[in-house]
Structures are given as C-alpha cells and as structure tokens.
Amino acid sequence: MEITLRVDGQERRLVVDTRTSLLDALRERLGITSPKKGCDHGQCGACTVLLGGRRALSCLALAVAYEDAEIVTAAGLAEGGDLHPMQRSFIDHDALQCGYCTPGQIVSAVGMLAEAEAGWPSAVSADPDADEVVLDDAEIAERMSGNLCRCGAYVNIRPAIAEVARR
C-alpha cells in the first residue's frame, strides 16, 4: 500500500506491506532510528513515539493505520537543533547508561507531562478527582512504568523528569 506519514514535521510517502509496524516503517524505511526496537511486543517502551501528542507504542501500531496522525519521535523533539528540555535534563542528570531505552524514556516523559498537565489521574493518585496533579516520585514511577531500563538508571531518570515537571 502507498501511504503518507507525517513524521517530525515532514510528510513522507512510502510503499509498505500491510504487515509493517509503524516502528519498522520509521526505522527501516524512513531511516528514523530514534525509536528503538526492544521487545517488539509492547512490553518495554523503547519504541515510544507521540501520535497526535499522546505517547504510544510504535511496535504495536500498523503503519497503514496511522496516516492521519502527527508522529513525533525523540529526534523530532529537538526543534531547530536545540535539545528539548527533557533531553537536556536527562544529560544533566546522567539519566542513562547504555542509552538504548533513552529515546523511548524521553518521549514517554514528554507525553506523560502533557497527561499530568491535562489533569489525568494515575493509579497512585491520592485524590483521583483532583484538578491538579503533583508529580512526586511515586507518581513519576507509576506513570513511567511502561518504560523499562535494563541498566537500572531509574534513580537518575526520576529526578531528570521531576526537574522538568517543576518548571
């Protein structure tokens, strides 16, 4: 099928087999390698991208089904070559070791902050009907539980996200 994807602000036309995941379309066909293939089963979060501003797993999305979506990858977060505040904060806090899960962590954290901004509760929210979400350590850990880090860099990932959340 011939499809058009809007990725990181650019329209890209390509021909794909219907079986192609959005992740494979981005990486193998368009050369956008910031979303990583970890488990390819929706369990690790390394392939996280924003679809219409909401974080989602590109390994479980079929490319043919997302022609309508504005897709943003970790590479697309850096506008005009300037690092996104979340990217800057991950560097400042040394919030990574091998770095493989990092683009997924960063995109997920950006999507998560937008959800908190919109007042979405989480499973650990003391008052699930509260108007404002306070992102303490427990909230950040719960809301980021879909992103695994096999190096165990969580102790620095949490403060990296908390610092951006405070701004």
Binding site: G42, R54, R55, P121, S122, R143
Partner: peptide, 15 residues
C-alpha cells in the same frame, strides 16, 4: 477509573 488506571501502561492505555 481505578480499574483502567491499574491496567497496562500509559502508552498502551492511549492506544
């Protein structure tokens, strides 16, 4: 609301 939030992850719940 609680049941939904206790399931899956943020990325999965969005899809």
């Amino acid at each position: 609301s609680q049941a939904l939030l206790s399931g899956a992850s943020g990325q999965l719940r969005n899809l």
